[in-house]
Structure formats: structure tokens, C-alpha cells
């Protein structure tokens, strides 16, 4: 039976109107795990933006956070540890029509997948990336990660971790072709949602580092920031986030920051005492690798055949 276009559109609308339509299974994260907040924000984004579930792909690596795609009723690719970026790039290159998201952990992205991360920034393919940064290896039961603050006690560093933490923001801001860098925290749902939304709307590689609580392994590590709103700094700008009045009542440490100003962005990013929250950098002018690479040449049978025969002519004896 054929449905009229209007009816189909109405069905579409109906289909997407509920959050449940993007929910799949019951998340198996620990109670209080920051991943739950990220999931809620992203499901809300999908609903609000009316994303077609069949045209949306969530790609992840391995880790607690990389379970994410299983909880979305979209297409998903839960791959191998550290390789979410190249898988997602392949998806985007072969199918620019799909909306691609990446969920990756601090071990996944900043350690085993670090090479891919740098290059993913440089490729600047149009996808939205969530770095679930709990500053620890969650799934493998508490080992230090590159983003663990120095002195973090873990199963591989019982006397405290030895090295200064790697800062995903400054690293990202140092890569050529970087086009969108933001930071959010899982415990301020409102800005988390706004940042996720801005990232989604940015055309290019939108990288959102989300500071994520892991009550299982580091129950207290973020307390200083949770308990003292002054240590969270909200970034706002006409071209960035706007902060609601309600939020302003709690978070008084605010600063205006133009996301086009990369030097200032780097300065803000370097601050580790205070967690900056907002859009650090956005440049809409950077070309996307998939656009650069798709030549527009039509891959018709005739064209392929003609080209093939022309090549053979060159080698004829």
C-alpha cells in the first residue's frame, strides 16, 4: 500500500517525537556514572533535531563509554580499542549522507588511539565527537590514563601516577585544521546539551571533551569542582553559548570568549585549576576532507568502463 507524501511526513514526525525512539536497552553503566548524563543529552538532541535513526551512526571504540551506541536506537559500530576515529572516517567517506557521531574514552582517544585522534582533527571530517573523559580506565578496572592528574592512585600506580596529565584541549588546539573544540561537564545538563547541540550543528570535526564522573573508581576526584562552582568557568559569546539566568545564579564565574580567537582559546584551555565550560574554538571555514576528496565524478558503469579501457590502451602491446 502506498502512503501519500503528507501521510508519510506525518508518520515521520510521529515516529521521532519521543525520546524512547532513540533509546535502546537499559544502560549498564554504574549508578551515578557521568555517561548516563551524556546519553540523555544526546538522545534529546536526536529527538529535537529529528534525526532519522536509520541515517544516523554512532561509532565507538572500547571502554565503558564505548558501550554508548548500544543504547541508541540508530545504527551503531562498537569497534575495537582506540580505532573509533578511522572507522568513523571510513563511514563518512563512503556515506557523506549519514550523520556520524563518535564516542570515545580518554584511554581510547588519548592513549591507544592518539595517532588517530591527531589525524582525525586534521582530516576535519564532518562528525560530532564526544570524549568521555573520566580520567581513568573504567572498563579495565582502574588504571591510570593519560588524562589522570599526576598522583592519581590506581591499580597500576598504587603510589600515585607519575606524569602530568595530558590536556586534550591544548593538544587539539595545536593541530592544524582544527575546527571545533568545546568542553562540557556531565553535571551541568543544561550546558552539556547546549554544547552537544552546537557541536552537532558545526560542519566539520566537532570535538567535545566531556569531563565525566566515574563514581566507581574515582568517586572523589572531581569534588573540588563539584563543590565549588567558582572553579567552573562558563564561556559565553554572541557566537558561542548564551547562559541562562538560572545557571548564572549558580555559576558566577563567567567570561566572554570569542570562539574565533584561537590564542585566547589556548590560554583558557591551559587552565587546569578551573574547568572552562563552553565553546573554546570554532572556525567554520575549514574544509572537510570528505568534501575535498569527493571529486564529483559520476561513478556510472559507462564512465568506469571508459576509464578502464583507456587505461588498458596505455598498456597494449
Amino acid at each position: 500500500m502506498k502512503l501519500s507524501a503528507t501521510k508519510q511526513l506525518l508518520d515521520l514526525y510521529k515516529e521521532q517525537s519521543a525520546l524512547e525512539d532513540y533509546q535502546s536497552g537499559v544502560p549498564r553503566w554504574c549508578t551515578g556514572c557521568g555517561d548516563n548524563a551524556i546519553l540523555t543529552a544526546v538522545q534529546r538532541l536526536c529527538r529535537d533535531e529529528g534525526l532519522r535513526p536509520e541515517k544516523t551512526v554512532f561509532v565507538s571504540g572500547i571502554g565503558c563509554s564505548s558501550r554508548f551506541p548500544h543504547y541508541m536506537k540508530t545504527y551503531g559500530f562498537h569497534g575495537i580499542h582506540g580505532r573509533a576515529f578511522p572507522v568513523a572516517e571510513g563511514v563518512k567517506m563512503s556515506r557523506p549522507d549519514l550523520t556520524v557521531f563518535v564516542n570515545t574514552g580518554d584511554g581510547d582517544c588519548c592513549s591507544i588511539g592518539a595517532a588517530h585522534w591527531i589525524h582525525a582533527l586534521r582530516y576535519n571530517m564532518n562528525m560530532t565527537v564526544f570524549l568521555h573523559d573520566n580520567q581513568i580506565y573504567g572498563l579495565t578496572k582502574k588504571q591510570a590514563s593519560p588524562t589522570s592528574p599526576i598522583g592519581t592512585k590506581s591499580n597500576t600506580t598504587p603510589r600515585g601516577s607519575y606524569l602530568d596529565a595530558l590536556n586534550p584541549l591544548t593538544v587539539s588546539l595545536g593541530v592544524s585544521n582544527v575546527s571545533f573544540i568545546a568542553q562540557a561537564v556531565d553535571w551541568i545538563p543544561e550546558t552539556l546539551y547546549e554544547i552537544v547541540k552546537a557541536a552537532y550543528h558545526h560542519k566539520g570535526f566537532s570535538f567535545v571533551r566531556i569531563i565525566q564522573r566515574c563514581p566507581e573508581w574515582l568517586p572523589k576526584s572531581l569534588d573540588p569542582w563539584l563543590q565549588d562552582p567558582e572553579r567552573v568557568q562558563l564561556l559565553h559569546h554572541a557566537n558561542g553559548l548564551q547562559i541562562s539566568q538560572g545557571l548564572s545564579r549558580v555559576y558566577k564565574n563567567q567570561v566572554e570568549h570569542d570562539p574565533l580567537d584561537i590564542h585566547r582559546a589556548r590560554e583558557i584551555a591551559s587552565n587546569t585549576d578551573i574547568i572552562p565550560v563552553g565553546i573554546l574554538y570554532q572556525n567554520r571555514e575549514v574544509a572537510c576532507y570528505e568534501d575535498t576528496r569527493h571529486s564529483g565524478a559520476l561513478r556510472t558503469v559507462e564512465a568506469i568502463k571508459k576509464n578502464f579501457n583507456a587505461e588498458l590502451d596505455k598498456y597494449s602491446v
Binding site: 576528496r293 571529486s295 561513478r299
Partner: peptide
């Protein structure tokens, strides 16, 4: 590439393989 094919030089072979898998998964 004259007929719209794409050769992607990845950052290493792991990435090349993962890229190919992602591309296969979503397409041909």
C-alpha cells in the same frame, strides 16, 4: 580517481584497515 574512486592514505595501517572497514560497513 579520474572516475570518482578514492585512495585514502591513512596515518598508519591500523587506521587504513579500520577506515576500510568503516567504509565497507556503510557502503560497498
Amino acid at each position: 580517481e579520474k572516475v570518482g574512486g578514492i585512495v585514502h592514505q591513512a596515518e598508519d595501517e591500523i587506521a587504513a584497515c579500520a577506515f576500510a572497514i568503516g567504509a565497507s560497513y556503510a557502503g560497498k
